[in-house]
Nucleic acid binder design. Structure first.
Length: 200
DNA sequence: CGGAAGATTTCT
DNA sequence: GAAATCTTCCGA
């Protein structure tokens, strides 16, 4: 069952934690693709140096983040890969949740073709990887998750799992925000990325 | 208008 | 450990 807008228009950290175990769905012309969310990160706008919306000014690509929750924010990084975010909170706040890793459920053949690999745990174990596997690009920037073929649904027959929290990844430039425990992931899941070393 | 940096991935 | 590669942002 599709999550409604009320789910997204709440505290960003709460939404991030509750997104774990939910299922991301993308119905494309080539066929449906689904994956279980196993790793996310919260980006809290003006309270967070690592966030694109830190300046508080909605310009260019960050404009979508300042909408109300329930929209997709897709941006390109390093000119090569895309990253998927789900906008949270009320209009004008500018906070969102980055989807970092998924566990493939449906449309595996399609993912393998797009990714060019048959390794199951390597299909969606990273922000850029899952976007490639799901066929996500900037045409989905600003997509409404409450209507259309791109959304998150409630998981059914879900086994219990343990949620872990820790510092985020790849934002060493963000000063003290590096230590904020705003990364949430499912413990002991093979698809969690988290491969960067933690030496400091 | 030009320069600089980045919420990553992949290969050596 | 380092390169690939291009969009976006900011200063002049």
């Amino acid at each position: 069952m599709r999550l409604d807008r009320e789910f997204y228009v709440r505290d960003t950290l709460t939404v991030a934690r509750e997104l774990l175990g939910k299922v991301l769905v993308h119905e494309t012309a080539a066929g449906p693709v689904k994956g279980r969310i196993v790793e996310v990160e919260a980006y809290c706008g003006t309270r967070d140096k690592a966030a694109h919306a830190y300046s508080g000014v909605p310009t260019g690509r960050t404009r979508v983040q300042f909408r109300e929750g329930g929209y997709a924010y897709v941006y390109m990084i390093y000119g090569i890969y895309h990253c998927l975010n789900l906008v949270t909170e009320q209009k004008g706040v500018g906070e969102c949740v980055l989807i970092r890793a998924l566990e493939p459920l449906v449309g595996m053949a399609l993912m393998e073709e797009r990714r060019g690999t048959k390794e199951w745990r390597n299909l969606c174990s990273g922000p850029g990887k899952l976007c490639q596997a799901f066929g996500i690009d900037r045409s989905l920037n600003g997509a409404n998750l409450c209507a259309g073929g791109f959304y998150v649904e409630e998981a059914e027959g879900q086994k219990p799992f343990t949620v872990k929290a820790g510092p985020r990844i790849g934002i060493d430039y963000a000063g003290e925000a590096v230590d904020f425990p705003w990364r949430f992931y499912i413990e002991d899941n093979a698809c969690v990325s988290g491969k960067k070393k933690s030496h400091r």
